[in-house]
Design a protein around this nucleic acid. Structure first.
Length: 455
DNA sequence: TTTTGAGTTGTTCGA
DNA sequence: GTCGAACAACTCAAA
């Protein structure tokens, strides 16, 4: 029989590891929470999502999914001692700890006399295959994507569809999802149920709706948080509830236009994040550009707390942080605005923001989270220049002129005129809303100065 | 080796 | 009110 190890590809459709495993013989599908080899634990919101994603996957597998926690090697060894396992089918992994674990499993399986078959289920282009002519990795997005991915390298794999038939090995069904303790005792997570349908079928449905209703207006409308014209595919992609290859080829079928190309390039950014982390693993903890190592962060505790709670006194920031708390998600533009504010106005280390997002986002992605925070902070590859500082008041008026998004999360401002919505304290009305925690103009000057110092 | 052109998402100031 | 320049050079990629 074949062991199928699920990691970040919790689906049946176009899942090469599952597909090829099921062609041969009976399978044992398992999920391992490896708290021995993997240092970084997933965040709270991701745990919530993972719980439901596994539940849904298990249903699709006719309740044959087995759950384990611990050292992958010991778990494999135990299963091998009980059952006649000849092969392991597993997705290729691309993050530092997972790559190490994969190597260990490879050596270990060999010792046990098990074949290990690895399939790329997660990325359109494998990081090690994309290099410049001088055989070093790209550090700028555009040439990476246009030349490295689109022109030079072969097309992404075509999707495989669903396995025709799944034959499950009969084994003692001894594990349960609850053992993984993914849902917290305190039921804060229930509010997230209002916003998300977590299953493979919903992932596909969501994507189809996006293609039908929104992708052709994506380029411009994606910037406005009240329009709902973004795909909202990120958590499904993060947990592999839809195949990125499938998405790519569905997009290829559409008539060529700027909007579709733009959406595809956003998938390209996800590839770029994994690519960077693969080639420059130090960026997980350290600045991609080491000249920032001497940067003096302010790290005020009260300011950080105000940012997390959505009590900065800047409505568009606070609305964003409340959206995060309420839904486990933030609109793309607002992510940039709150990120820029934390790093460039409050001068708080990007790693703090990265941690908070990691804990609160249902789509918290290992590589994208790190690469994007470094991009916002200006410490990353091909990053925003230091003088690009988002003005939260201006951004609020520009991208939420009617205040629909702002008021959705800050209803206490409903009586403030639209003209004053982003500066409620300048209105004559008294509202129960915090004063701005900083003077914006002053903080901008300080920031330019601080960034200037490390040039 | 040298040269050349380009580089996700912005803001402010002054003419 | 509108528009272009400044912000600041620097690194990257490719010829």
């Amino acid at each position: 029989m074949n062991l199928v190890i699920f990691k970040n590809n919790l689906r049946l459709n176009d899942n090469p590891a599952l597909y090829y495993a099921s062609k041969e013989t009976d399978i044992i599908p398992i999920y391992i929470d490896d708290n021995f080899n993997i240092k970084k634990k997933i965040g709270s919101a991701s745990k919530y999502w993972l719980h439901h994603a596994l539940n849904s996957l298990n249903t699709c597998l006719n309740n044959n999914l087995q759950y384990y926690r611990g050292n992958s090697l010991e778990i494999i060894s135990e299963l091998k001692s009980k059952y006649n396992i000849s092969k392991i089918f597993m997705e290729k992994t691309f993050t530092p700890d997972e790559i190490n674990l994969q190597k260990k499993i490879s050596v270990f399986a060999n010792k046990l006399g098990i074949d290990l078959e690895l399939y790329n289920c997660s990325l359109l282009w494998e990081p090690k295959t994309i290099l410049k002519k001088d055989m070093t990795p790209y550090k700028v997005f555009s040439p990476f994507y246009r030349k490295g991915c689109l022109q030079q390298f072969e097309e992404p794999d075509k999707p495989l569809g669903q396995p025709n038939k799944l034959n499950f090995a009969s084994i003692e069904n001894e594990t349960s999802l609850d053992k993984l303790d993914l849902l917290p005792k305190f039921d804060w997570h229930k509010k997230l149920n209002k916003h998300w349908r977590i299953s493979e079928r919903d992932a596909m449905k969501n994507f189809k709706l996006f293609i039908e209703n929104s992708v052709n207006e994506y380029k411009i409308k994606r910037d406005f948080p009240y329009l709902n014209k973004n795909s909202s595919m990120s958590p499904y992609i993060r947990f592999g509830m839809i195949s990125i290859h499938r998405m790519w080829w569905e997009l290829q079928k559409l008539d060529y236009n700027n909007n579709v190309e733009h959406y595809k390039s956003e998938l390209g950014w996800r590839e770029f994040s994994y690519y960077l982390l693969y080639h420059f693993p130090y960026m997980e903890y350290d600045n991609f550009q080491s000249k920032f190592d001497s940067f003096e962060w302010n790290n005020s505790k009260t300011n950080f707390e105000a940012w997390k709670k959505g009590a900065t006194g800047f409505p568009i920031i606070d609305a964003g942080m409340k959206e995060l708390w309420e839904t486990g998600f933030i609109h793309n533009r607002i992510r940039m605005v709150v990120g820029s504010f934390l790093v460039k106005n409050l001068l708080i280390d990007w790693r703090k923001g990265e941690q908070w997002f990691w804990d609160c986002l249902v789509d918290a992605d290992y590589a994208s989270n790190i690469a994007s925070w470094q991009w916002v902070a200006g410490t990353g590859a091909d990053a925003a220049p230091y003088f690009r500082i988002f003005n939260p008041i201006l951004q609020g008026y520009k991208f939420d002129s009617e205040g629909i998004y702002t008021l959705k999360y800050l209803p206490e401002l409903k009586n403030i005129s639209k003209k004053n919505l982003q500066t409620p304290k300048e209105s004559n009305l008294k509202v129960n809303y915090p004063d701005p925690i900083i003077d914006y103009k002053q903080s901008r000057q300080n920031s330019l100065q601080a960034y200037n110092n490390i040039k």
